[in-house]
Design a protein around this nucleic acid. Sequence first.
DNA 1: CGTTCTATTGAATAACGTCAAGGACGGTGG
DNA 2: CCACCGTCCTTGACGTTATTCAATAGAACG
Lengths: 252, 252
Amino acid sequence: MNLVAQFAVDHKVPCEQCPLRDCAIFRPLSDGEVDLLSDFKIGEFTVEGGSTIFSEGVRSDQLFTVLEGWGFRYKTLPDGRRQIINFILPGDFIGLQATLDAEMEHSVETLTAASLCTFPRQKLTEVFARSPRLAFDVTWLAAREERVLDEHLLSLGRRTARERAAYYLAHLFVRAEEVGLAVEGRVRFPFTQQHLADALGLSLVHTNKILRRLTYDRLIEWEHGLFRSPDFGALAELGGYDMEDRQERPLL
Amino acid sequence: MNLVAQFAVDHKVPCEQCPLRDCAIFRPLSDGEVDLLSDFKIGEFTVEGGSTIFSEGVRSDQLFTVLEGWGFRYKTLPDGRRQIINFILPGDFIGLQATLDAEMEHSVETLTAASLCTFPRQKLTEVFARSPRLAFDVTWLAAREERVLDEHLLSLGRRTARERAAYYLAHLFVRAEEVGLAVEGRVRFPFTQQHLADALGLSLVHTNKILRRLTYDRLIEWEHGLFRSPDFGALAELGGYDMEDRQERPLL
DNA sequence: CGTTCTATTGAATAACGTCAAGGACGGTGG
DNA sequence: CCACCGTCCTTGACGTTATTCAATAGAACG
């Protein structure tokens, strides 16, 4: 694990040129909003896979939007047990969970090389003052994240291991697809079965057995990091994954 | 279960007289903020225990602040399995999880008679426009809720049933205490073991056995609905509950 | 006092975790 | 090119945890 002590600003691409904005899923911004966001933004930087972005118990003065790469957000118990709260994909806004002056209560680590857009936490109040619309977007994102956690909580509490795995894989697949990470129905999952186990709240061994069975039942394929589902409908059905219409969402 | 089809406005107490504001845990508002909030508020109403406030799959035009009473927020699977996401206590702001025009993805039901402060969802954007500070408070509450869910997720995924129960009971006790519901170290828990089981992701039988053991080990007492812990430190320790300094929080 | 929730307990069963041992694969250095 | 390693994946055997089934006892409520 590689601790990023200081986030150097590599360069600064104007927000209006942000490649993510081309994804249909993201709400278009007005010129004024983009200007404000550009102003809010400090810069970008790139880290390699395995870098720690946030660390439990440490304060962070920055917020990030992920431009590229995968990561995950997690908490650990003193004896080392780890729970992955969720995976982080391009377009995700991270760091909001902590208050302005409080310590992070979770850690974030990258799975692949990643590039992040940086915002100073202190200026968030200024953004709220200058653009109610962007303020609303921030709130909207927080509420959306909460809905995702609700569903995950339902999984961990009440779904069987098999249903849980099916739900989560369907969920991850769709999230990746939304931001253009799917090629011919395939997505590269840059995490190991141990990561998935830690997200599902299962042991590594049991996770493996369930994945093998889902593979045998032709619900998933996951080899050499490349994932696809031969029958996504059945996978979603098994997991109780709701293929709701993906609504437009903000991008900060 | 008693479905509340329409929320009649019983009366409207000015926000500046809100009894909850006396609790030390809540951040004081400026006069201007209170005025705006009063303006935002439609009124109050009272429901009996067992009433459904929100229903999964149904749109709601209102947001609520709980003035008095207990409730819980939950999701269910088609076959009836239920997961309680969290309990709702006085001072909690509910309904934010859904977007302006989307269906609720969870239900909320009262456990006791409750009185709720009502706000029209549509006017939320106006509040954002008129008071960045209140907007920030809304966001802050959403982020805080997320942190609570993170911790609960860690519980369900990685804590043993015993640790989980200890954590959750400690958590509930402190929450109740914060809003003045504790009398001589005792809190009335208005829910059944089935509710607790559904929150912990355990079966009723197993929950009961664990509670009996916690009682035998003199970590908790819970009789006739009245809860206390003879050794809160040990309970918190077992559950890994962090007795962080309770920071001030907004009240809407 | 019946009736209806709720709590409690034991026994049988299923789900999941732990332990242990290989196997596949890619990278590295000789 | 090949031996050596480290990481990740896979599988079987076995132990533990939690669920389900079933039955009874207590409380709460008219």
